[in-house]
Design a protein around this nucleic acid. Structure first.
Lengths: 112, 112
DNA sequence: AACTATACCTAATTTTATTAGGTAAATACC
DNA sequence: GGTATTTACCTAATAAAATTAGGTATAGTT
């Protein structure tokens, strides 16, 4: 069974969270990390990931450093100061949004 | 504080779930139902809702019946047979997707 | 030689939601 | 009586975000 794509709109927050937890990561590493920590149930596609990463750099939330490892280039991303701040609020917002969806999916039965 | 919009991509599933729970509803009622069951933390905008409803009708998942109540027209929506089937799989898919996001947001700490 | 994994990327399209409105009747407020 | 709010439907234009469908290149495996 193929892993599902990420919940729409959550990709940016997921990237920020991964970087908060791991200090610095490169794109391909992020795709593997998500598949692994979700037991292959969810994956982030590279076609969505790279544009999202570029936008985060553009917005000043991430910085990059490139390194050549085993003949291949790795582009490491890390949170800027502003990125760390934004990470907090985005995680908070996503958690609240997910909770709200949970309330719809598992409504309190009010007529008992 | 203003309620946040729905988690992107989840609107269709939320509509189907509301109809599964309530039998039939009209659009405006759905917007109130979501605000109420999330304690005003989430709301679905009408500009997103109505096109989504029309698409669900177009796709054969919903039927409509219009009624005049207190001088105003209400357009009630209900699940078709196919709609009921799709509701199950969409709810299941959304639940799994949310679980995966939760795993990212609350990762198992593997280096203890 | 072919295939898989690593590692980056983009262009065109589609999907989905937002912004920014519009119409109209009923009700509540002053 | 006049204004504001709530109810109740809707759309058009734009923006945001992801998908589809690729491309490049190196390293390792069969």
């Amino acid at each position: 069974m193929e892993p599902n794509p990420v919940v729409k709109g959550s990709l940016t927050t997921i990237i920020l969270k991964l970087l908060e937890d791991n200090g610095r990561m490169y794109g391909y590493e992020m795709t593997k990390a998500v598949r692994e920590s979700t037991a292959n149930k969810m994956s982030i596609t590279e076609a969505a990931l790279y544009p999202a990463l570029h936008k985060l750099v553009e917005d000043g939330l991430l910085t990059t450093t490139s390194e050549k490892v085993d003949g291949r280039i790795r582009k490491y991303y890390a949170l800027t100061k502003q990125g760390k701040k934004e990470t907090q609020s985005k995680i908070q917002a996503l958690k609240e949004a997910l909770e709200s969806v949970q309330l719809i999916l598992n409504p309190k039965l009010s007529n008992g």
